[in-house]
Amino acid sequence: MANHSTSHPTHVQHHFVDSDQQFDSAKLGMWVFLVNEILFFGGLFCAYIVYRAWHPELFTQAATELNAFWGAVNTVVLIGSSLTVAMAIRSVQKNQIKGLKINLLITIALAVVFMVVKGFEYAHKFELGILPGELYTYEGIEHAQAAIFFSIYYMMTGIHALHVIIGIGLMWWIYVRANRGEFSSEYYTPVEITGLYWHLVDLIWIFLFPLLYLIE
């Protein structure tokens, strides 16, 4: 708590007393940011809930256009990547930089797999004419608001995918810094907070999957 210290390791910024204060601050700041993310997605979930409560039959019909199998595969892929991120943090905590780097690379690979699967899903829908809003031309679902369901679907999964892409970028940045030897068991704050971000991306998907794909 004191505002001074005698030994200032290089990774501690000048306005912090010690690396504990810096670590705790970064983590608290990240959690506050995650609260933000929850409410950001919250708006979309709210729109989803309102429309589902209005038109339950639309949601049951429209969900049949989504492939539960590939949704489940992607769920497992994201869970796997959450595991490898957790393992990456564990590695750096134990000063195993090689383990850190390997786990980061696996995480990136899994995130890419997720995006590829998503890409195929999107491509398939585009072919059928299932596009958001006014561009919607599909005739397989007889419901006045069918386009709105898919607008919600595209907004939710699209923004989630955007988060995955940002996550890949962050993970790559951590990997580069790890390569430069910046992290050790003494200092791994960026690894920890990137990990928190990635778990949140997983958390959101844990809800998106049953809400979008598993409506019978």
């Binding site: 993310e37 919250g42 596009l131 809003g133 386009a147 607008s151």
Partner: peptide
Amino acid sequence: PVLAITLLLLTMERVFGIG
């Protein structure tokens, strides 16, 4: 963040007519 998503939805409303 709720304002952010609202404005983003409005922007999409104008770009894609998400409805």
